[in-house]
Design a protein around this nucleic acid. Structure first.
Length: 364
DNA sequence: AGCTTTTGATATACTGGCGT
DNA sequence: ACGCCAGTATATCAAAAGCT
């Protein structure tokens, strides 16, 4: 496979650190900025952790097999980098993709053993990754398994950033982003190389955003605290779970929309609620609870949306932006969960057309 | 394989104008 | 006053994109 075909110089040690910036990371790329950058936006973060993880797969039960972190300054200059293999305590998954075999991982530390060093690399920084929600959820789950939490408060997705910048890319794969900025990929799907490539592509992106005084698409990261590691482990006993998944769709909400939620008031059946961003509890679980309580779960924000639930009202995502434009009330998850325990029955309406038959509010 | 956001296409709702 | 029609605005659904 990938073993001895690579030149000695390209061999990547299992664990390493480099105090010095890689000189190759400072080319005059397409976005090489004049030394005196006008004014750096005050609101920009003070440091970044560019991250890439390889995993055994894409599902929630999958594990990390390798991880890399490039620490960057506020201006995107590389401070150092770090890489480690991780023993996933199961099969390595798509070896054909990441090149890691069971043998290579057998002696690697398990996640709990690298969690501390990993956390040190992330602490106090904005996590940067390509399709960041993926890397972040994988990392958050690993920390949850280890009964810890990752010291990450915000993430920045380089796909969203590329879109915000309006880069003329054929698509938003890492490969395309790298090509656009003239960054060479040496070993695609090797965590360290992907992280390096992303760091190189992120810096010019960051400077371009700064020149445009673009608000960075930062999203809040909620550490996972409610973690159920049980479900569909290799089908042994229950044939019911053997692959069949319940359709994602929910029945329509039977209640009319009573209008917007009013601050300080109660939730009422029929209200249209939209969610955005991470939540402490499983997103689907939260939506189910909302539905059970008689709320209408919407997938987008419109003028008729009663409220938006998000833990990061400052975010620059589509839903939050729209909600702010429309003046849609915004609640955080904690407040919403609290209100969910006491939802007012649907408005019977002017004429009592079977109003008494309206289903009662469920205790959650 | 799962997850979330964005985007495009289609369906529905609303509004203004007009005829009866 | 009422009802209808056409044009527009918005809501909803479906699919795609990205990651391993």
């Amino acid at each position: 496979m990938l073993e001895d075909h690579t030149a000695p110089a390209a061999r990547l040690p299992v664990q390493q650190t480099s105090p010095q910036p890689d000189p190759r990371l400072v080319p005059g790329g397409p976005a090489a900025a004049p030394p005196a950058e006008a004014a750096w936006p005050e609101s920009y973060p003070e440091g970044y952790a560019v991250v890439d993880v390889e995993t055994t797969g894409l599902a929630p039960g999958d594990r990390i097999v390798s991880a890399a972190v490039y620490r960057l300054t506020a201006r995107g200059e590389v401070e150092d980098h770090w890489y480690t293999l991780v023993n996933p305590e199961r099969d390595p998954g798509p070896t054909w993709l990441h090149g890691l075999t069971a043998e290579m991982l057998a002696d690697a530390p398990v996640f709990a053993e690298v969690a501390g060093e990993f956390a040190a690399r992330l602490a106090g920084r904005v996590l940067v990754a390509h399709n960041a929600v993926f890397d972040w959820t994988m990392i958050a789950r690993e920390y949850a398994r280890a009964s810890r939490t990752a010291p990450v408060e915000q993430r920045l997705c380089t796909i969203l950033l590329a879109k915000a910048l309006g880069l003329p890319l054929p698509n938003h794969k890492l490969e395309s982003l790298a090509a656009y900025f003239g960054v060479e990929q040496r070993r695609a799907h090797h965590a360290l190389d992907d992280a390096r490539v992303l760091a190189e592509a992120f810096r010019p992106s960051l400077h371009r955003a700064a020149r445009q005084r673009l608000p960075l698409p930062l999203l809040v990261c909620r550490p996972i605290t409610e973690w159920s590691d049980a479900p569909p482990s290799g089908g042994g006993r229950t044939a019911r779970w053997g692959g069949w998944r319940q359709p994602k769709r929910r029945p329509a909400c039977p209640y009319p929309n009573p209008g917007r939620f009013e601050a300080g008031g109660r939730l009422r059946q029929g209200m249209r609620v939209a969610f955005s961003g991470d939540t402490s509890v499983d997103r689907e679980l939260l939506e189910d609870q909302a539905f059970e309580a008689g709320l209408h779960v919407a997938s987008s924000v419109s003028r008729l949306t009663s409220l938006l639930v998000t833990n990061y009202p400052e975010a620059a995502t589509g839903k939050v932006t729209r909600a702010r434009e429309l003046g849609t009330p915004i609640l955080d998850e904690a407040a919403f969960t609290q209100l969910l325990r006491d939802v007012a029955p649907a408005d019977p309406g002017p004429a009592g057309r079977g109003a008494a038959a309206a289903p009662p509010v469920r205790e959650v």
